[in-house]
Amino acid sequence: MAGVNSPRQGAYTALAYVTLIIISIFCLLPFVWMALASVDSNAQLFLKWPDSWTFDNYIRVFATENGTRWFANSLFTVLSATILVVIISGLGGYALSRSKAWWKQPFLYGILLIRVLPSTALLVPLYKILLTANNGMGSLVRPLAGENYRAIMQMVGFIDGYLGLIIVLATGQLPLALWIMKVFFDGVPKDYEEAAILDGATLVQRIHRVLIPLALPGLAAAGLFAFMSAWGDFLLPLILLSSPELQTLPIGLFRAFLRVNEIDYGLLAAIATIYLIPAVIAFSFARRYLVQTFSGGVKG
């Protein structure tokens, strides 16, 4: 081809490099600050080279702050929600793919529409529902628990308890996960199942022996997106949790940041980095699924 090596093409390629370098610096600069500040013995608000390198900030997150607790809380609630999402969306996605019933289409449109509802707009009624459920759970637990009442309610309560946060987090991730699984099962031929049916397998056996092994890649994608989105959620733990023992990483970071008179940038940067790393790992795995899920499973 004549045009490919012309000086003009070379100029365009150079322009492409310059553009990409500028955009990349814009994208990376905040991360560079955070990473450097987290290992700086004298971290400041602005970007600078560390005075001296130290892991002191990270150690302090776990030693003087409740970092271990925050991290464990985040991991426990988000992983539980992810597992719930994987199970429920695996079953539901299969049903949505195989059914020919009247409810299939309204349900699919429904979950696409649910994805667009802003969660702040649902927060107040959601809080009231959870409060009612929490009172119900409380009157159930109170006679049984005695003096452990508070500790048990922190586990199974709907407000300021793990259970409530996990269920609400999971529900928020369900629509996308159901969609991913439905599209995934659409691509799994029915032959395998029909063969299993002919062999006299029950539904449970079919799910266990045939569908779960086939569905693993889909479940991985659904789980990754559920994990990322639940891990990044700030609003729900902000509203639903108040006990210090239940705080998660985003709230720990936010609250530490609000102590205006004694802002410790090194410490904050270390918390933020610890919070960021699992998100980046999950995202790097989820990247390949990004295009399909973003368009909600469009064809063509």
């Binding site: 600069l29 955070m34 970007l47 990044g232």
Partner: peptide, 17 residues
């Protein structure tokens, strides 16, 4: 990379900027 950053981390980093 910015896509992977949770909202609060993004807000915090940009405070510095």
């Amino acid at each position: 990379l910015p896509n992977a950053a949770p909202e609060v981390v993004a807000g915090f980093m940009w405070i510095s900027m």
